[in-house]
Amino acid sequence: MKYRIWFLIAITLSVALPLALWLHASSGDTAVPFQVMIDSLWNYNPNNVDEVIFREFRLSRTLTAMLAGSALALSGMLMQTLFQNPLAGPYILGINSGASLFVALLLLSGISIGGAQIGIVGSALLGALLSSAFMIFLSGFLRNQISLLLAGMMFGSFTSAIVAILQQVSGAEALKAFTMWSMGTLQQVSFNELSIFSLVVICGILISLFMAKYLNVLVLGEKPARLLGVNILRTRVLVLLAVSILAGVTTAFCGPIAFVGMAVPNLTRLLVKTQQHHLLISLNLLFGALFLLLSDALILQCSEIIPIPLNAFTSLIGAPFILLILLRRVR
């Protein structure tokens, strides 16, 4: 079973990921020759229009897809272990909603703090952090797996109601800014913003790696973990910090993206059948990137015929997937 895992990683890294990268980078309105792709990276000429288009629009979207996919899958995996619930994920437990609410509060109230982008990132992170703290508080009372999901959904409805009211009372300019953001797209991240995005995601990954050993014990449940010497409170706080950082920053840059965080970790566990969290972290990063790259490539390919919002596409795949998990594992 060990080689199975290494075989999977090797195949993903050497075949699937490069293929998906190439597919994604070459999808779009105009075909970009391979030579231009290479040149724009290692031999960049700002006067060559093709190279500029590729570097500024295509490449940033490709990298955003990978970062967002990895971050969402990892945050979902962390939540599933923390809540001991295969259906947990940043979207379904209202972490995205919390982030959206705070971005809405910022954009629609007309207050702008510093640069617009920094403000959005900051408020999304704060919103994600507060809503995940609220969820962990609720999980103390809701022992049933399904109850927690329902609570997450109620929280989501509640925040979107507030957002709807805010939208009604806000000015045209602010409304436009918020609507643009809430559509959810991988296109809005510029090449320069990518460095902030990746830095924050790396922080989230580092915290997760540091916590992996504790997550390995936490699968036994809280009491056994505590009796084995795990500091439960510290573990919960740090894992939720990682979850909020990862899901919050992704929501800030790409808007709400549904179900990736729930579906990818389940697929990963199904494929590799392990509870070793160092492995699960690496594999979720890989498969998350792969999943979102392929989804977005498909969207790009179809965009001539029918434009599909990213959030709608992931829901189309994700919602039936939840049903499948319900039938297979929860009942």
Binding site: A212, L228, G229
Partner: peptide, 9 residues
């Protein structure tokens, strides 16, 4: 043996 395990568990 958790208490005695390395960073990677």
């Amino acid at each position: 043996k958790f208490a005695n395990s390395s960073f990677f568990g």
